[in-house]
Amino acid sequence: MIFAADTEVSLASAAALVASDDPDTLLTVDDLVRFVERWQFTGRFDRSEQELAEVRALRPVLRRLWQAEEVAAVELTNQLLAEYRATPQLVRHDHWDWHLHATTPDAPLAARMVVEAAMAFTDVIRSGELDRLRTCAAEDCDNPVLDLSKNRSRRYCDAGCGNRANVAAYRARRSAGQTAS
């Protein structure tokens, strides 16, 4: 484990939220319910169209944060933490042992999501590990990639781009081999 478990989950959920933009998989409140359940967000959840719109509006902000160089990432992280009045506190709930929350459970869902992401980014930045946050290496994809591998080798997102690239490379090698014969 590179980061604390809650940091890794926050980074993964932020990446998933950014990637939900293309194709858009957050079109309905039901889509949001599935996202919240998948990523185990706790606290207030209104299940409303307004809440859906607020969460959808986070995607470009988190994409900018994901793609930012260090100084810009620090500035944007600090801006988000200040804007949402983050107050870090240790909490323990459900199956999670002690970890950080920086909003109250009754804060709006979008606020909790963006603050969790910003808090995770503070760990990434402080650890000098921003290079673990990448963009997919596939030419036709700009989804975020969270590389938690030991050898820092992850290049593709979770949307199947690595599979497509491997198949294309295999076919190209095979085609080249048949042409050479």
Rank of each mutant, 00 (worst) to 15 (best):
D30R: 09
L52E: 07
W39K: 08
W96P: 10
S10L: 00
A14I: 10
V91F: 05
D106H: 10
S153A: 07
V18S: 05
E54K: 10
R47E: 02
H95K: 13
R164C: 13
I125C: 04
L17W: 10
R47S: 03
R59S: 01
Y84I: 08
R132V: 06
E139N: 00
L100D: 10
C157Y: 00
A168L: 06
Y156M: 04
L11Q: 13
T25H: 14
L65P: 01
E75T: 08
A118L: 05
R154Q: 11
R92S: 15
L109N: 12
T7D: 03
T122A: 02
S20I: 07
H95W: 15
F45I: 07
R56S: 01
Y170P: 05
V74I: 05
T77P: 10
D46C: 01
S153E: 03
V18W: 02
A73T: 04
R155I: 06
A19H: 13
S13E: 04
A120P: 09
D106S: 08
A5N: 12
A57S: 11
D147L: 14
N151G: 14
E69N: 00
A14Y: 12
R155K: 13
M1D: 02
A137F: 08
L130P: 15
L133H: 00
A102G: 03
P60Y: 04
R132S: 12
D24W: 04
F3T: 01
R173K: 06
W66K: 01
G43T: 05
V61Q: 12
H93Q: 15
D147V: 15
A165L: 00
A53W: 13
F35I: 14
A107N: 03
Q67N: 01
R34W: 14
L81W: 05
A15H: 07
A117W: 08
A176C: 08
E70K: 15
Q67P: 04
T135A: 07
P23W: 06
S20P: 08
S127P: 06
A169Q: 13
R173A: 09
E49I: 14
V29M: 09
E83P: 02
E139A: 03
R59F: 00
A5V: 09
A120N: 07
N78M: 13
L133F: 00
E49F: 09
L90F: 09
C157R: 03
W66N: 02
V115S: 01
E139F: 10
Q178V: 14
V18E: 09
D147I: 15
A172G: 06
R85P: 00
R164G: 08
L27P: 01
D147F: 15
H95V: 14
V91C: 05
F121M: 07
D131W: 00
L100M: 11
T77N: 12
Q40I: 12
D30N: 09
V61Y: 09
A138R: 13
R152W: 14
R152Q: 13
D6L: 05
W96C: 11
H95L: 15
L58V: 11
A168R: 08
T179I: 10
T42G: 06
R155Q: 12
T87K: 12
N166Q: 11
R44Q: 08
T103H: 07
A12S: 13
D6S: 12
L81V: 09
S48T: 07
V71Y: 13
A110M: 06
A120E: 04
D24S: 01
R34P: 11
T42W: 03
L32M: 03
A4K: 11
E129Y: 11
R85G: 06
A107V: 07
A107C: 02
Y170K: 05
D142E: 09
L90I: 11
A73W: 03
V124P: 02
